[in-house]
């Protein structure tokens, strides 16, 4: 509890400091102030209220060009918490993350899987080009409290580049705490859920919809960005997942 209360009071200030530090510092040095466009490009905490996605390049590419288009910063956020909502398991929720996982592994960081609903299958990871040496799995039978504790600790650790967790419902307080942990460790945390909760403090919420219209279409899926810092309206795009299934 201690960590939470401390960081929660500090975080908004530091966020503001960071946002303004660029402007202040540069003016003091007497250098020409950068244009607003430049700041928007680089800083993930600044965006134009009237514009939609596609501002800046501070994200890390998702590997799916259409998805990059609808995400602010043209990619996944560098840190923070994001939620992937799929009404059922097996809708391509992990497919979305394959390129990201590959780049995390290539950076030499670890991926922690916290209580996946079923056995994590190593051959599938190898097929997707993900090195299993840098993967740690926390068992499903771990208690919820312990799972959350390990998620928070992992998010705070810089060696973990990506933390994946399957939690169907979490209160906003817990989510906020995880979000702050992810910011301090500059780690990306992903929560897989079945249902969307409107007031979640996560940085990004993405929903995968069942492609009921084209039932026989295996590889395409509709992905909706419900909420992202820098977007005010949901954007939907159709992606071709399951690329290595061809």
């Amino acid at each position: 509890m201690k960590t939470y209360s401390e960081s929660s009071t500090k975080a908004p200030e530091s966020l503001l400091d960071r946002a303004y530090s660029h402007i202040d510092g540069i003016e003091q040095d007497g250098l020409p102030a950068p244009s607003i466009e430049e700041l928007l490009q680089r800083n993930a905490d600044l965006w134009r209220g009237c514009d939609m996605a596609g501002q800046g390049v501070h994200g890390q590419s998702t590997g799916y060009p259409q998805l990059d288009e609808v995400l602010p910063g043209r990619g996944w956020p560098q840190n923070g918490l994001m939620e992937i909502i799929s009404p059922h398991w097996g809708m391509g929720e992990l497919q979305l993350l394959i390129p990201l996982m590959r780049s995390v592994i290539a950076r030499g960081q670890w991926i922690l899987w916290i209580s996946p609903p079923h056995l994590l299958y190593a051959p599938a990871l190898t097929q997707a080009g993900i090195n299993t040496d840098q993967i740690l799995v926390v068992n499903l039978d771990t208690s919820c409290k312990d799972a959350l504790w390990s998620m928070e600790k992992a998010l705070q650790t810089k060696n973990c580049g990506l933390v994946l967790a399957w939690q169907t419902w979490l209160p906003g307080k817990v989510l906020r705490r995880l979000q702050l942990a992810a910011e301090t460790g500059s780690t990306l945390g992903v929560l897989f859920k079945h249902r969307d909760s409107k007031y979640s403090p996560s940085r990004l919420r993405i929903q995968i919809k069942d492609s009921s219209s084209s039932s026989a279409d295996f590889s395409t899926a509709d992905v909706t960005v419900i909420k992202a810092r820098g977007n005010f309206r949901p954007l939907t795009t159709r992606l071709k997942l399951y690329q290595h299934h061809a």
Binding site: G108, Q109, V138, N139, A154, K158, N159, C160
Partner: peptide, 30 residues
């Protein structure tokens, strides 16, 4: 923190192990 010292990772894993117990943390292999 662009340096990923193994040291920190081991410390983290030891902490995980201390809390969850050794058999709750696994690595996987093909």
């Amino acid at each position: 923190g662009r340096q990923y010292h193994d040291n920190n990772l081991y410390q983290f894993m030891e902490q995980l192990k201390a809390r969850l117990g050794g058999h709750f943390v696994n690595s996987i292999n093909t």
